[in-house]
Amino acid sequence: MPDLTKGDLAPDFTLPLDDGQIFHLAAARGRPVVLYFYPEDDSGGCTDENREFSDRAAAFAELGARLVGISPDTVQSHVKFRKKYNLVVPLASDPEHLAVEPYGLWKLKKLYGREFMGLIRTSFIIGADGRVARIIRATRILGHAQKVLEALEAHVAAAPAK
């Protein structure tokens, strides 16, 4: 599947959340949605990233956005991870890659000369119309959440008034 680009219709999906709810992307239409995809619970970088998004969750909400973290981990793993670090962002479980693959994020990675398939850390801003408004690759983990928040602020400012 080719990579998504700005303006594409965001692939719809339904995933379970760690709070027992179900997240269905199409049901969130009418407001922006921020999806941040991360590789795994309780690793150093993913913990830092989730803490940063949690620290800024209120700012995302003030802009009218629904914020959801997604990884291939199980719901049970998410529950423990969120509780351990007092995270406030709901975490969606995607072990079957129902969102990860349509968003083009399951790719060949290289680390210390070893090649393996893995998730490419990326965030998407989905506009109220259900289209991809921004794609933000996490080139650095620290500061990524702030970068996404600033992109959302710019998107909201540029959106036509209702």
Rank of each mutant, 00 (worst) to 15 (best):
K83Y: 03
A151W: 07
F23L: 06
P95Y: 13
R134V: 14
E49F: 14
V132A: 04
V88S: 12
G45V: 13
A157V: 11
Y103V: 08
G127N: 08
I126Y: 10
Y112I: 00
P72M: 04
A65L: 04
H97L: 12
Y112L: 02
A10H: 06
S77T: 10
L87I: 11
G143C: 03
E49G: 08
F13E: 01
C46Q: 14
Y112R: 00
E40C: 06
G130Q: 11
L152G: 08
A161S: 14
P16S: 05
G104N: 05
G30A: 07
A158V: 13
A138F: 08
D8G: 02
D12N: 08
A157G: 03
S43T: 15
I126R: 12
D73M: 07
F124Q: 00
D129I: 14
D55V: 02
L98S: 12
E101C: 03
I70K: 00
H144E: 02
G104T: 07
F116K: 01
D129T: 11
D48M: 15
L87P: 01
A59I: 03
F37K: 09
T14V: 09
I136V: 15
P160I: 10
D129C: 06
G69D: 01
D73P: 00
D8W: 14
L111K: 09
F13V: 09
G69I: 13
D42C: 08
F60L: 04
I135N: 01
A157C: 04
F81S: 02
P2E: 15
P72C: 12
G44W: 14
Y38H: 13
N86Q: 15
F81D: 02
M1A: 12
P102Q: 11
R56E: 02
L25Y: 13
L35T: 05
E52T: 09
V132Y: 02
L17K: 06
D41P: 05
T139D: 09
D48T: 15
D42S: 13
L17F: 01
G30C: 04
T47S: 13
F53I: 10
L105V: 11
W106P: 01
D3K: 11
A57M: 06
L25T: 13
D129M: 04
I136D: 01
R66G: 04
L142E: 12
K109R: 06
A138R: 04
K80H: 05
R131E: 00
E62H: 07
G143L: 07
G30P: 02
I135V: 14
R121T: 07
A10R: 06
G20F: 10
D41K: 10
D18N: 14
R134C: 05
N50K: 06
P16T: 09
L35D: 05
P32M: 10
P39W: 13
A154S: 04
L15F: 02
I141C: 08
L111I: 07
P11N: 07
A157M: 03
L91M: 15
E115T: 02
F81T: 06
